[in-house]
Nucleic acid binder design. Structure first.
Lengths: 227, 227
DNA sequence: ATTACTAACATCCGAGTAG
DNA sequence: TCTACTCGGATGTTAGTAA
């Protein structure tokens, strides 16, 4: 049984914090038990098992135990830590959505073409969108669900405005890549907050033309996540 | 039961490496089981438990499962990872030895006073040792054992030399602090490789005088560890 | 092929306790 | 006090299997 049991990691971690890397540290099994939130008996057993597997050196002196982590034990800890660290730091940092191009009702184009919006687009995302949004229906549940996380992300915020008669809600933009080639932005609208089965894309150019797309075309959208 | 069980960490770690932070990733329980070295059934149970505790979102679609890590699950992973990381990086980086001053037989002074050694001392540790080594008997087993690790450490190496008649072995020096005040070096000799109950210290000055020490005085030695 | 149930098995933990 | 044993109950894992 040359494997380090995961439940022993916390024990080793505690011992390490006590300085057991270089020195034999004197401890009681009950204090150790308290620290790792287990009983005195469990702590005692942990130490015995760790010693058996040569993860610690253990010296009995009178009534209490002195313990030092072996190079083997230490390297096992490092191994696990870096494994964790790696998976925490090197996950893919983008969301991938797949769906089908559908035709909208033209209302997207109407709203996005309003001066109150276009002025902000120009200054905040650097271009005035081609009049007409690309509607992509997300066919799979997993992609519909994945969109939800953008509700809590910030993106680039286009503020709401009023023309005196009515108010037009804010728009959040997320820079994205369509079919791995065309730069665009996915937009989330304040009004259509609840329906995640369709997402809207805007771009400087007409994506239907530059991407040779028509209704029913399969679409892949990649949206990098900054955080 | 709002606690993350440790054995689930590996499951989460695997999911994370698959990109489950931002996207729903589709997996089979048997492949997951293989990855975490458990059975298919165990993997299935892990996922169910993780879902129950809201560490993952889980979507069944037909025959397989898609999974995404929740912010809660992610932050729990970060918590554990940083705990580990901290204990790995911030342990005390010195060895502490305690013992009693004993009188040597003067042979230490004789050997260390040889030209072949003093010339190297001057250039490598910056001073010519006061003639006479300080012998410290380590009374406790834990300190005797702790000395052993220096055998595998490098320290500052004083090379062996020959005067034509015989060869004088190498000496390893480890910068140390005596009783938290006096700078000195602990020396390990090639010849007395086996006895760890006594360590020898050298210093620029007479430590018995500057430290007001006599035979029987209690001694504390701190030796920083570089690695 | 898949997920996940039940039941048997293995492991872990802690109360009691000896030395 | 202390460590560490036994043992019963809780928990985790797997084999078999249903759907």
């Amino acid at each position: 049984m040359p494997e380090l049991k995961i439940q022993h990691i916390l024990t080793l971690s505690y011992l390490l914090s006590k300085g057991a890397k270089h020195n034999y540290v004197s401890i009681t099994t009950s204090s150790l038990g308290k620290s790792i939130k287990k009983s005195q008996q469990a702590a005692s057993k942990h130490l015995l098992e760790l010693e058996q597997n040569q993860f610690i050196d253990r010296i009995m002196s009178g009534r209490n135990v002195s313990v030092k982590i072996t190079p083997k034990g230490f390297s096992e800890m490092v191994k696990l830590s870096t494994t964790l660290q790696k998976s925490l730091n090197s996950f893919p940092s983008h969301v991938e959505l797949k769906g089908t191009l559908v035709s909208g009702m033209g209302e997207g184009a109407y709203y996005m073409g309003l001066k109150g919006y276009t002025k902000q687009f120009k200054s905040k995302i650097g271009y005035v969108p081609f009049p007409g949004t690309l509607n992509v229906r997300l066919d799979k549940k997993i992609h519909q669900e994945a969109v939800k996380q953008f509700e809590t992300l910030d993106g680039i915020k286009i503020k709401s405005f009023s023309d005196g008669k009515r108010t037009y809600g804010w728009v959040k933009c997320f820079p994205a890549k369509l079919n791995n080639s065309i730069n665009c932005d996915m937009i989330l609208l304040e009004r259509t907050h609840h329906d995640n089965s369709v997402v809207e894309l805007i771009s400087k150019t007409c994506m239907r033309k530059t991407g040779k797309l028509k209704d029913g075309s399969k679409i892949t959208i990649k949206i990098p996540i900054s955080s």
